[in-house]
Design a protein around this nucleic acid. Structure first.
Lengths: 211, 211
DNA sequence: TACTTTCGATAGTTACACTATCCACTCGGG
DNA sequence: CCCGAGTGGATAGTGTAACTATCGAAAGTA
């Protein structure tokens, strides 16, 4: 297919597709002449993936590029790719308050996650703890609760990609992580609403507080 | 305190504080003269809250402004504020594919969350389902699992703000929702790592795939 | 009084994600 | 073979967001 058809199939304007080609997030088509190229289903899928990452995941094109590069490198195994995606998606700070870091590691210890202390997400957790502390809050008990909930989430995530052939798995990790994040937060909001109604007996969208 | 001290106490540069004042996300100080104003602890807290929202939550200043306005309006009760924060934080699309919307509502039905169908997050969920479908994936079984996990998360969230006086609760909802989101995603990454090591026996940060 | 700080206004900067315009070339129907 | 629409590649421009810099008059501080 030519670029106009690729545009039609995905809803992405032609100039934007050209821009993505320039930026390298979309691979070039197969050249058929000095100024002609052909695109295929792979380009359609890739373009949809890019739009999902940008629109739903809120990622920058630079981040998208990193992930694309990880997906395209042929020798990566599941864990390495998953790690790459994690790092690209979490935006972990370079350094954090040592006290908060220690408290984050304490949370991991109480969860029994001793082999995760090197992960960059621990710094994100520490940054959260530090920010909460500066604001006069203590979220630690909640974090333990969250951690237990995430064990079930992670089990579902791993089930989803297990027994999948490699080509499909690579994309699944990205889709599962990225769309999963968005879905998880949406479900948290919904669960809060439901739980709030359950506790405070709201029958409308404007229920009363405690009474 | 004067603006320089406010800057020192929070680490935010003076020109940025002025910018926030101009944008209205930080309330003006108490005027003491034609070109003098005094700031207090409330400004320090507010400024920290803004930075937490921007840096950790990745929110735009426009979104921060909406949330600030909700927090500052005196007559809001817990549920209304929580709803406001939810709406500001979820970035729900205005319209989604009807099939996906129906599937999202089906997920809610299977979770027993029948009173949450009006929430904007349902559209986000539908957008995720639609994007996954276009990419050839079916995340629905995972979403059910995520939903059950979120019930525990939401219970912890509601516990956290219950029995809190109103002034403190307003900020707690923001902090709990926003920092909670960040923490939840970080913990998901960590749980994935732990679960992966458990299943595939990784002893390093580069464990083997299935064998 | 001399020096620093502040307020408020205006303008400039940087980064990002497109978007528009050219131009030379080529495909595809007549 | 011709011609108009489409194409690849290059360059430049647009709009938004979040700061950042500078300035002048006034106020605090030594």
């Amino acid at each position: 297919m030519r670029i106009a058809e690729l545009s039609r199939a995905t809803g992405v304007p032609v100039p934007t597709i050209k821009f993505y080609l320039r930026e390298g997030v979309l691979p070039a088509g197969e050249r058929t002449g000095r100024n002609q190229a052909r695109y295929d289903d792979g380009h359609v899928r890739r373009l949809r993936l890019i739009r999902a990452m940008v629109d739903l995941g809120g990622l920058s094109l630079a981040t998208v590029g990193e992930i694309i590069a990880a997906v395209d490198s042929p020798d990566e195994d599941r864990d390495h790719l998953m790690g790459q995606v994690s790092k690209s998606l979490i935006n972990a700070p370079d350094e954090v308050d040592p006290d908060a870091q220690a408290e984050a590691e304490g949370v991991l210890a109480r969860l029994g996650w001793t082999d995760a202390c090197q992960h960059p997400s621990v710094r994100t957790l520490a940054a959260v703890i530090a920010a909460a502390r500066d604001l006069g809050h203590d979220l630690t008990p909640n974090l333990i609760e969250y951690g237990h909930a995430c064990e079930a989430v992670a089990a579902a995530d791993l089930d989803y990609v297990s027994g999948m052939d490699v080509d499909r798995m690579l994309e699944s990790v990205v889709v599962g992580t990225l769309l999963g994040d968005t879905a998880l937060l949406a479900l948290r909001r919904l669960a809060q609403t439901v739980e709030s109604h359950k506790r405070y007996g709201g029958t409308d969208d404007q229920p009363a507080g405690d009474h």
